[in-house]
């Protein structure tokens, strides 16, 4: 059972979200991916206006319409627009089909502007995915590192948070969040450097690790390889490939009447 935490409507041609998700599902079938989580639309922006993130969420909702048995979505929101983000969470999650939020690079996540958004998402049992990177070449001004996420996690110790990309530079990323039991790592969107998953299992245990690919920019292949190619117990592999994400999403999926 493979569930993919981290998918985008990119990497394939197609003029509409429906065309794109249909193609992406063909690749998912080839790779044995059972369920996929999508977020962000057909065109991205680092600092989206409320209109922009609403448009992107509409595209995700549109993509899910014929795939609600297989694909889930997170709402893209921005701490630059807290009120509008809270309204978007109400629209897309409380009163809509989405089951989590995605925070990208508009504002570093240690900022207290996030607190209201985190609290609202947590109250709805929505998953919370925060992009993080430690770029040796320099982060964007609003781009979080796992250290920023650790600060957020310390303020919300009972809320589960996902550290997207494991910070890219995973040797730093795993260290940054390992002391915060409420933080899980997403393993998609960086090169399949060997030893990553072994270190993650050693430092975090297998239950705080979520497989994700970051398609279409990445391939399923390179990202699955981190799990299937690692020297870890098979039970850990099963947890990472799908059971952990399923366990995390099950409460909100149940509330929405989605069978999983």
């Amino acid at each position: 059972m493979i569930w993919d935490l981290h998918c985008h409507l990119s990497g394939v041609d197609g003029r509409t979200p429906d065309e794109r998700i249909a193609q992406l599902m063909e690749y998912a079938d080839r790779m044995g991916i059972e369920r996929l989580v999508f977020f962000m639309g057909m065109q991205w922006s680092h600092e989206p206006s409320p209109d922009d993130f609403r448009r992107q969420n509409d595209e995700v909702i549109q993509a899910l319409t014929h795939w609600h048995d297989r694909a889930f979505g997170f709402a893209y929101v921005s701490p630059q627009f807290v009120e509008e983000s809270l309204a978007e969470i109400a629209r897309c999650i409380e009163n809509g089909p989405l089951v989590g939020i995605k925070l990208w690079v508009a504002k570093r996540c240690r900022d207290e502007a996030l607190d209201a958004i985190i609290e609202r998402a947590a109250a709805l049992k929505a998953a919370i995915f925060q992009h993080t990177w430690f770029k040796g070449t320099g982060n964007l001004p609003g781009e979080s590192t796992p250290v920023d996420l650790a600060a957020l996690a310390a303020r919300h110790p009972t809320v589960r948070l996902i550290c997207g990309h494991t910070g890219g530079d995973w040797e730093r990323g795993i260290r940054a969040i390992r002391g915060h039991a409420n933080v899980s790592i997403g393993t998609g969107g960086f090169d399949p450097t060997a030893g990553m998953m072994e270190m993650a299992v050693r430092e975090l245990g297998p239950r705080r690790i979520l497989y994700g690919s970051d398609i279409g920019g990445r391939s399923f292949a390179s990202q699955l390889a981190k799990v299937t190619g690692a020297d870890i117990p098979d039970e850990a592999r099963r947890l990472i490939l799908g059971q952990n994400l399923r366990r995390m999403l099950l409460p909100i999926l149940r509330e929405k009447g989605i069978d999983a």
Partner: peptide, 14 residues
């Protein structure tokens, strides 16, 4: 061995 060997292998399947 810098990359997991499975990455290239799985690309042949994808």
């Amino acid at each position: 061995p810098l990359f997991y060997l499975e990455s290239a292998l799985l690309k042949l399947q994808e």
